[in-house]
Amino acid sequence: MAKQQTYPFWLGGVGASMAACCTHPLDLTKVRLQTVAGTSRPSIFSIIRTSISESGFRSLYTGLSASLLRQMTYSLVRLGSYDQIKTILSKNGPPPTAELLAAAMVAGGLGGVAGNPAGELSLSMLMTSDFVRPPEQRYHYSNALSGLVRLIREEGPRGLFRGIGTNLTRAVLMNGSQVGSYDYFKTTLLRHPLPIIDYQLRDNLLLHTVASLLAGTVATTVCAPADVLRSRLMSASARHHPIDVLKKSLREEGPRFLFKGWTPAFIRLGPNTVLMFVFYEQLKKGWKTAFPA
């Protein structure tokens, strides 16, 4: 029996970091749009234009160091764990979709815990708080490491797990809907030809792009409510319980607020998902060529 190909645990984190470098300005715009309260809805371009006019073009890459730290903790663990669990489940043949979905959600939870400190720093440095709060209440982190040190100094080790409940929920939803659905779409498209045009995809760049774009659409829709709620909690000038923020927003804006910023979220997450999986698949291909089983 041929030996199964294995890959480094950290490979997914590298692919996710490469994708984050490309889509960071879109991530910043999405977060800023989600923190705008009220019924008026500024456009994506107005948010970008305001950012550039007030702080220059470099402001679109505010918080990139925290974003990369998050990818090398959160995404590294969630992608690496999923591949490890999937390998175990596949010993006796291809596992059913339900088992892979559960594996993706468990891996997402592990990644959510590992990436929580970097996730909180990333939201702060993306100006979720700095863009909304008055100057005297802003964080002013210069980079991810200094922000991490300051967070521990000011709040202690418990500060590393600030917002863990909301972030963990989002991580489970994200990995289940993004990684789980990508695996499902990829497997389905390999087994069945595309309808109408009757074209059979092969395991190549086109397949990875189509499957990841579909996965990005599913992930954006599933994660939108938790994403908006997390951004609202971070932008608040005082500590609030998630349920209180949810009730207040529903009362003032209606249920549509749960999907506020869906378009910029998809514009960011769609390309990010495509790039992440394309980079990840190419890294796997390169590793397999360099270090065959």
Rank of each mutant, 00 (worst) to 15 (best):
D183V: 03
V172A: 13
V218P: 07
A226W: 07
S75C: 10
F57A: 09
T128F: 02
D227V: 01
V179W: 01
A102E: 08
F277G: 00
A103Q: 06
A171R: 06
Q4M: 10
F161I: 10
L26I: 06
L168G: 07
T29K: 02
S59V: 01
V210F: 04
D198H: 13
L110T: 03
G270A: 01
V132M: 08
L269G: 00
N116H: 14
V31L: 05
V278L: 12
H192Q: 11
G254V: 05
T23R: 03
S142F: 08
G147Q: 06
G80H: 06
A265E: 12
A19S: 15
M276F: 03
A211M: 07
I88N: 01
R162E: 12
G80C: 05
V132Y: 04
F277I: 02
A226L: 02
L110F: 09
A107L: 07
C21W: 05
R49E: 14
H24R: 08
Y199G: 00
V245A: 04
G163W: 14
R202N: 03
K247E: 11
A118V: 10
L121G: 08
G63L: 09
F277E: 10
E120N: 14
K91F: 01
A293Y: 02
M125F: 05
M72L: 11
E252K: 15
Y184L: 13
T220Y: 04
N204W: 00
E54W: 00
H24A: 10
